[in-house]
């Protein structure tokens, strides 16, 4: 099959979704210029009224999308750096996320928020390195975090079709990754996790750009230590495929969660709680979390590396749960 980069898959999803439905529009900063390529060609194809470049006014363009959605459009709101959502937090959390319930279901809000270059990229320091999906999950947004080009295109198409606000996490480390992507328009449904690698000894739940890292660790451990690691990718964090998650956990009984968000109230904490509540009797070892540390990203690269979750830590955690035995 044809190979595309994650970024190109996003671009194709944008073009195909806007071509298929004229109520889809995109708004944000530097959309026409396409500073990375994911919005390339949109302005030429769809014009000023559907491709809107805004001033630096994150709160206003976020609220603008809410109003456009109430009036019948399907806006895509692109944040060029995820931490810009904090500037627009009222419009996201108090307005878009709460509006449907507060209106008693009178209106739908089919809005897709794209968070570009999510996570750490090396040397971008405290305000350009966040993976802010725990905040958004807490607020009730549907959130997808694709780990490869195929899922990126399919989850983007589904996000745009979904009649609720959806956040699409475009991990910085995933954007250049290549993978097979069909040319036709297709959707990856929400709430369907994916076994990216089958295994029987330990389940690694990995999120976004950490999925390829987890696969590499799993491969090495299979070859070097004959350990069979299953890598499970939730793909959509909310809704979460509990059934798929629990199936894998019950198969192996040993779990490591590999997630690049803060340890305290991060996504791994929620997964741990669900597993503890619903699969306690299947567990042969305590759940281990390999997460980001609870500090803003320091600038120095060695400090950054010390804060981020790493393959070596994942490997150590797998070995620890693998060899764990009740005393």
């Amino acid at each position: 099959m044809r190979q595309l980069r994650f970024l190109q898959a996003m671009n194709e999803a944008y073009h195909q979704a806007m071509g298929a439905d004229e109520s889809v529009m995109i708004i944000g900063e530097d959309i026409r210029g396409g500073i990375r390529g994911e919005t390339k060609g949109l302005h030429g194809a769809f014009g000023d009224l559907r491709v809107l470049d805004t001033p630096i006014s994150e709160a206003a363009f976020t609220g603008f999308a809410t109003g456009a959605a109430l009036a019948g459009l399907r806006p895509i709101v692109q944040f060029q750096v995820p931490s810009l959502i904090y500037v627009a937090f009222d419009q996201l959390v108090n307005q878009a996320a709460k509006m449907r319930l507060m209106l008693g279901g009178q209106a739908n809000l089919p809005i897709t928020y794209t968070l570009m270059v999510s996570g750490s990229r090396g040397g971008n320091a405290g305000q350009h390195s966040d993976n802010p999906y725990p905040y958004l999950l807490h607020a009730g947004f549907k959130v997808v975090c694709p780990s490869n080009a195929y899922d990126a295109k399919g989850l983007m198409i589904q996000a745009i079709r979904e009649d609720d606000p959806v956040v699409f996490i475009a991990s910085a480390m995933s954007l250049p990754q290549k993978g097979p992507v069909p040319e036709e328009i297709y959707a990856v449904p929400f709430g369907c996790g994916d076994v990216k690698r089958e295994g029987s000894d330990v389940t690694v739940i990995a999120i976004g750009h950490l999925v390829p890292e987890a696969l590499a660790v799993a491969e090495r451990l299979a070859q070097e230590k004959n350990i069979s690691v299953e890598v499970w990718d939730p793909r959509s964090l909310l809704p979460l495929d509990r059934e798929g998650l629990l199936k894998s956990v019950k198969k192996t009984g040993r779990v490591v969660i590999y997630d690049d968000t803060n340890r305290t109230c991060g996504f791994a904490a929620e997964l741990s709680a669900i597993i503890g509540e619903l699969a306690f009797s299947s567990l042969k070892a305590p759940i281990k979390r390999v997460t980001r540390a609870d500090v803003p990203m320091p600038f120095n690269l060695a400090l950054e590396a010390a804060v981020l979750p790493k393959p070596q830590q994942l490997e150590d955690a797998i070995l620890a749960v693998r060899s764990y035995a009740h005393v």
């Binding site: 206003a60 603008f64 999308a65 109003g67 456009a68 307005q95 009178q106 209106a107």
Partner: peptide, 28 residues
């Protein structure tokens, strides 16, 4: 919503960009 009330807001000023987005649709 049926008679065109696009939300009543407990956050001061928060309805202004929402009105703009609706207006964009009307214009487009």
């Amino acid at each position: 919503v049926g008679i065109g009330i696009f939300g009543a807001n407990g956050i001061v000023g928060a309805g202004a960009p929402i009105a703009c987005g609706a207006a964009h649709k009307f214009k487009a």
